[in-house]
């Protein structure tokens, strides 16, 4: 390797110039040279996944699809939310941004699924093992604080301009909260409840599945929600490298200094974001009062509800009569 990678004195400074940038360049070149087939395979798979999903999302008539999304909102939350999201989605259609919005949604969904599939197992491992936790934390800090635009450059080197680098950068940028909140959620599960699981002879896998994950669900879902939100903001930035969707509309508006177009695209992003946020937020709550939840609840508890004995205090009393020692008068 040439001398450029060696440490030389920096101009006008007592400190040597550490050529971090050169090293990174070299590293990326090496990866590119040696793993090109791998990158191409990843590229093909993700591209076909996103394109297929985009087509699927655009397949139903937009009006019908907006109604379906609103109904999903009704099931998960409330009537007000359903009406609000229907109005918002119709506005996106009337601004003639529906196709772009669906492209962004497809990109976001694929990125979210991949990010969650990585984040949850890593989060579980970090919660179970302090060393994993200590090793993962600085990596997450790096991923989260490195300016988003910096990711775009190496992604383009590996995958070229287009959809795929957009997805990869979105995944990297959106991953950290998923890991962090999964770890937090599992660490916060009541220790005595976990102990009870062990005391009845559960295996670690049974405890994870039956106790830790269900009890950590609200926190994990908050993490998934954050993954989606960060993913959406990155998916728009990825418009800069040709990822398409609402991001490309934003880029166009910047290049043309078209305030109106930029605002419309921005508004469409906001509508999408609020819809997704409220929807995923609803799945994380345990005290759900959504219509769907009430329906399910009614089905499981119809039988005993009529025969219920009354207040807890009433049911507490009969035991008093069960005392063993009874003197005979």
């Amino acid at each position: 390797m040439p001398e450029t990678t060696l440490i030389t004195a920096a101009e006008g400074s007592v400190l040597p110039r550490v050529p971090v940038g050169d090293w990174v360049d070299t590293g990326f070149d090496w990866l590119k040279d040696n793993f090109d087939p791998l990158f191409e395979a990843v590229s093909d798979v993700t591209e076909s996944a996103v394109e297929g999903l985009t087509e699927a999302l655009l397949l139903p008539p937009p009006l019908l699809f907006a109604v379906l999304l609103a109904l999903l909102g009704l099931a998960a939350r409330s009537v007000a939310f359903a009406v609000g999201s229907l109005v918002g989605l119709l506005l996106v259609q009337s601004m003639d941004l529906w196709e772009e919005a669906m492209e962004t949604l497809a990109l976001l969904l694929v990125a979210t699924v991949v990010a969650v599939l990585i984040a949850i197992p890593v989060g579980i491992a970090a919660a179970k093992n302090d060393r994993v936790s200590a090793a993962v934390r600085p990596v997450l800090d790096f991923m989260q604080t490195m300016p988003a635009f910096v990711y775009l450059v190496p992604a383009v080197t590996f995958f070229g301009i287009g959809l795929v680098p957009g997805i990869i950068t979105t995944i990297i940028f959106a991953l950290p909260p998923g890991v962090r909140l999964t770890e937090l959620g599992i660490r916060q599960v009541d220790a005595e409840t976990v102990e009870a699981g062990y005391a009845f002879g559960s295996s670690p896998a049974q405890i994870l599945r039956g106790i830790e994950l269900p009890l950590a669900r609200p926190t994990i879902m908050a993490g998934v929600n954050q993954v989606i939100m960060l993913g959406l903001s990155m998916a728009v930035i990825a418009g800069l490298i040709g990822a398409g969707g609402l991001g490309s509309v934003v880029v166009t508006s910047i290049s043309r200094l078209d305030v109106g177009l930029g605002f419309e695209a921005g508004l469409a992003v906001v509508i999408l974001a609020i819809y997704l946020d409220r929807l995923t937020g609803a799945f994380g709550r345990t005290d759900q009062k959504s219509p769907l939840w009430r329906l399910r609840r009614r089905k499981t508890t119809t039988a005993p509800s009529n025969a219920t004995v009354g207040h807890p205090a009433v049911a507490d009393q009969p035991t008093e009569q069960l005392v063993t020692t009874s003197p005979r008068a």
């Binding site: 009845f200 002879g201 009890l215 669900r217 345990t286």
Partner: peptide
């Protein structure tokens, strides 16, 4: 140990340790 806990010894906890879900 798991076999013994399943078949020989069970336990009741101070703060109940029930599964809320």
């Amino acid at each position: 140990l798991r076999a013994v806990r399943q078949q020989r010894i069970s336990m009741v906890f101070q703060h109940f340790a029930l599964l809320p879900h």
